[in-house]
């Protein structure tokens, strides 16, 4: 059925024919317009400096970012790695991942004396401070403390296995304990809102009494 319908419609469609004088007149008009126009050539890639510059910039940035992934604490690209990790943590909100990465760098540096243990330890402390602030903001102090406990245990295990790497690991353990103490201290200063709730309940009780 469709075939027949389409055939009829096609016949109808094909019967639309412009008059010959119209075709010629239209071409004459068009020719006048074409005389004022030029075909726009597509510039070659090399002739588009802005595009070429942006492309080169993207390629260089990609190389630097990929290269920085393999950098060690004393390398030139190490700050790039730290900066990109901070951006990723800022976007995803996963600051704990940075602690683990920096802790691993401390462990690696501690076992290889050429790997910049001081820089690794410094960055580890920075990542702890940053994660502590975020954990407190998000009310995740307890989870943060658990992560610190695990890191401390990890450092102690490596310390036992590699007695020669005492200095760096000891500092990392001290830093972990220090931040843990800060988190604990904060918790003691501001115990979970129980007191506030109790006060609120007392006030409500008093209010009800007055109303009676």
């Amino acid at each position: 059925m469709n075939g027949q319908i389409l055939e009829k419609l096609k016949k109808e469609y094909l019967s639309i024919v412009p008059a010959e004088n119209q075709v010629i007149r239209s071409w004459n008009e068009l020719q006048l317009k074409l005389a004022q126009e030029r075909i726009r050539p597509i510039p070659h890639f090399s002739q588009r400096p802005a595009l070429a510059f942006v492309s080169i910039l993207i390629v260089i940035t990609a190389f630097i970012l990929i290269g920085s992934r393999f950098s060690k604490p004393d390398d030139a690209l190490y700050p790039v790695k730290i900066a990109s990790d901070k951006i990723v943590a800022g976007v995803t909100g996963n600051y704990e991942a940075n602690i683990e990465k920096r802790a691993q760098e401390v462990i690696n540096s501690a076992t290889d004396p050429e790997d910049g243990i001081d820089e690794a330890t410094r960055k580890y402390l920075e990542s702890l401070e940053e994660a502590r602030e975020k954990a407190q903001e998000m009310g995740k102090s307890q989870e943060f403390k658990t992560i610190l406990d695990q890191q401390e245990e990890r450092f102690r295990q490596v310390q036992e296995e590699n007695p020669s790497s005492q200095r760096g690991l000891e500092e990392a353990i001290n830093n972990t304990q220090k931040v843990k103490g800060e988190v604990q201290g904060q918790k003691d200063e501001n115990p979970p809102n129980n007191n506030q709730n109790q006060n609120r309940n007392n006030n409500q009780g008093q209010q009800k009494g007055k109303n009676k």
């Binding site: 412009p18 119209q22 008009e29 068009l30 126009e37 030029r38 075909i39 726009r40 597509i42």
Partner: peptide, 17 residues
């Protein structure tokens, strides 16, 4: 008619693409 003419004008201008 106008649309048809404009079609050819545009086709000419962007023939490079």
């Amino acid at each position: 008619q106008d649309i048809c003419q404009e079609t050819f004008l545009r086709a000419y201008k962007s023939l490079g693409k």
